[in-house]
Design a protein around this nucleic acid. Structure first.
Lengths: 338, 338
DNA sequence: GTAGCGCAGTAGAGCGCTCTCCCTGTGATC
DNA sequence: GATCACAGGGAGAGCGCTCTACTGCGCTAC
């Protein structure tokens, strides 16, 4: 095996010479064109194996104008995104699975600094990727609009705020929250507070909306504290809520991580869960099964979101149409905290 | 602005015509060659901006034989890696930061299925990336050896088992664990057990070694239960330990996540921490500050590991030599569980 | 027998860039 | 004023691949 013949890696040319055919024929075989006789195909395949030939993707991209790779843009400060919130990890897994199945590569663009916007736009403009998946946008982010304008296929995770017509995948936040709050009401809770996510993120806004909708017409008062999806903010928000209304008997928390913080604050304040205060979270990440007590929560199919994101962006890249919005269902998982 | 002139994106040629110079000169300007007069440079820069020109990376790669991207290979079953273990997230952040600073791209290769090995080798062989970072290897993994043989720059996170001469970044596992166990002894603990990681991972092996070294010569008996770095395995291992030796008064747990599980098992068994049993973990991920009680643990500089991995692989890709092993220090963080 | 046709295979252009070579113009030197 | 050195810029090859012609060949049909 002369894996490394003089001059480095084998090219189409090398294979063609060894197989005694033309470059084009080798190309056909490599790309699975049907119009090659089995005998010729065999000869070529053997030559490919003997030389350890692997096509040069740069050369291929240059002519096909495809790169067979997709970028996942994570625009949040990485510190926040990758704390031990399992959300992104799960989504990443879904995206990865689906791309692997389609033999596409995943390029990770972590946008940690303000200058990252330009870097990402430059990158995307260079057509280094066939499409872009946008994760977890904040309200003011100009990225979806800018990307859409640049003409590259884009799919967003969660409805982008502002008026950009970027297709997105999201879950039925409000519906899930309504189910959660109705569940609390059904259990006889009457003073139901909420801890929300940030007001500039769709997940924050819509979960608050769901809460308000569920209370509407019930005569129950709403009580809101704002968090930022971190555990610590959940703890602090819970303390504020207890101060505002010591008599509250339930709280819907807009993420499991914040709910974990809230449970801690409740314990510290001497409240028993669920006896004194019932708690419901949102996400159903692993931690929800391990809080004390295990957390009732609204499950969203995170890995499935990732899969759908990948599927949609590949569809767009292939020139096929996609629905402007795909809303996945949520499901209330009742454990012991409510 | 005719961003989209006929035929699509502007090329070097387009810019050259607009600026009234040759392609070569534009290339010089774009790549920052010093041998261009300021006037010419200005004209070219203006033309570049006017057209919104971005170099085609495929064309560039084709001739330079570089891709300005680095692969991060994650060979573990994704399910495990991306549970809510914050380790990979933190490492990823470090890698990302360092690559961003060097203007390199990060390609994520998630090896979830057995067939992934071939896929990764093919990918790497195609020279789609300038270097490879290997994360969290299991013992039997042939990847480091195969990659090293293929001639591509490789750096591993953690010493690879088996006899491959792949340079790696690791932390002083044994030293950290010794410090932890000595701390327990200094606090008067006498029946110190351990919960280890899997026996086919370096982190598992070396942390166990550190534990054994620390007990050596003290006359204290060792008591070992094996986990797999998941929370659940920590819980189960703790239960086994309590059964084996109900009188144990301390346990060193080889990861924070497992320690969280162990704390739960202790609580369930009615043991007070640290009064009855002291617990020390390893990693110092976020969860360690939020366990009940907050966890004493051995901190490893995870983000720094990521940074160093990136730095080393870039150095190798640039043809510079690197140390065969870089061992980062660990540090005992004493909180309330010991 | 020859025109027609389809299929397997070849030739060669060209994707957008870099980089080596070479040419030209300027200024210094004698 | 002729010669030389040197720096800035241009011409053009070529990176490895795909894909559109086009060629040659065997078959059928008239």
């Amino acid at each position: 095996m002369r894996d490394l013949q003089a001059g480095g890696r084998p090219t189409l040319e090398t294979v063609a010479r060894l197989a005694g055919v033309s470059r084009a024929t080798v190309s056909r075989v490599v790309n699975g064109s049907p119009s090659v006789t089995p005998e010729v195909r065999d000869v070529v395949v053997r030559a490919v194996q003997q030389l350890g030939y692997v096509p040069n993707p740069a050369a291929r991209s240059l002519v096909t104008q495809r790169t067979d790779s997709v970028a996942l843009v994570v625009p949040e400060p990485a510190t926040r995104v990758f704390s031990d919130d399992a959300f992104f990890s799960s989504m990443l897994r879904g995206v990865g699975e689906e791309l692997e199945a389609a033999d596409k590569q995943l390029v990770l663009l972590l946008a940690s600094t303000p200058s990252s916007h330009d870097r990402i736009m430059r990158y995307v403009h260079g057509r280094t990727v066939d499409g872009v998946i946008l994760a977890s946008l904040h309200g003011a982010d100009p990225l979806p609009l800018d990307l859409a304008r640049s003409g590259i296929p884009v799919v967003a995770s969660g409805r982008p705020l502002g008026r950009s017509a970027v297709p997105y995948i999201d879950v039925d936040h409000a519906g899930g929250v309504r189910a959660a709050v109705e569940h609390l009401i059904a259990r006889g809770r009457r003073r139901i507070a909420t801890i929300t996510g940030p007001a500039d993120m769709v997940a924050g806004i819509e979960r608050l909306t769901g809460y308000q909708e569920a209370l509407e017409g019930t005569g129950l008062r709403s009580l809101v504290a704002v968090g930022d999806f971190t555990r610590e903010s959940g703890r602090a928000a819970m303390e504020r809520l207890l101060e505002d209304d010591p008599g509250l008997d339930a709280v819907f928390v807009a993420s499991d991580l914040m709910a974990d913080g809230a449970l801690r604050a409740l314990r510290q304040a001497g409240r028993r869960v669920p006896d004194d205060v019932a708690v419901v979270g949102f996400d159903d990440v692993e931690i929800a099964r391990y809080t004390e007590p295990p957390l009732t929560t609204v499950r969203q199919p995170i890995t499935e979101i990732g899969r759908q994101l990948a599927r949609q962006v590949l569809r767009l890249a292939a020139g096929e149409p996609v629905e402007p919005a795909l809303i996945l269902p949520t499901e209330l998982v009742v454990r012991e905290s409510s």
